[in-house]
């Protein structure tokens, strides 16, 4: 168990808990220093976009398919190649099974 007994290394969970508690206290302190005179439902809570009209909430929200757009765009070829075998047809799953079975038995009989 040499590896798991981490002692006082940077990643010891107790140290992380202490750090998390400290961060939590700091956040609370910071929050308490905010404006006390804030009233819900008045113009104070409205969003101001340099006078431009604020779009409705559905459009303000970034949808999940738009997040990491650049990542997927640059890896387009990888993804098109990876999507091709995932056809969702049960026969194809079984074809993979037969293929892997044939290769595995070949390897095992020759090298096992």
């Amino acid at each position: 168990m040499s590896v798991i007994g981490y002692g006082y290394a940077v990643w010891a969970p107790l140290i992380w808990i202490v750090v998390l508690v400290v961060i939590g206290v700091m956040v609370l302190v910071w929050r308490n220093r905010g404006q006390k005179g804030y009233k819900k439902g008045t113009a104070q809570t409205d969003i101001f976009l340099s006078g431009a009209r604020v779009p409705p909430e559905e459009q303000r929200h970034v949808k999940s398919e738009n997040i990491y757009w650049g990542f997927f765009e640059s890896l387009k070829e990888l993804y098109s190649g990876m999507m091709k075998p995932h056809t969702g047809i049960v026969n194809d799953y079984l074809l993979w099974l037969v293929g892997v079975l044939a290769i595995a038995i070949l390897i095992l009989v020759v090298a096992g």
Binding site: L97, I105, L108, V109
Partner: peptide, 16 residues
């Protein structure tokens, strides 16, 4: 050899 065939069948079935 038969044992190895059996191992292939067992292992791949369980991997699935």
């Amino acid at each position: 050899t038969l044992d190895m065939i059996a191992l292939g069948l067992l292992a791949i079935a369980l991997v699935m």
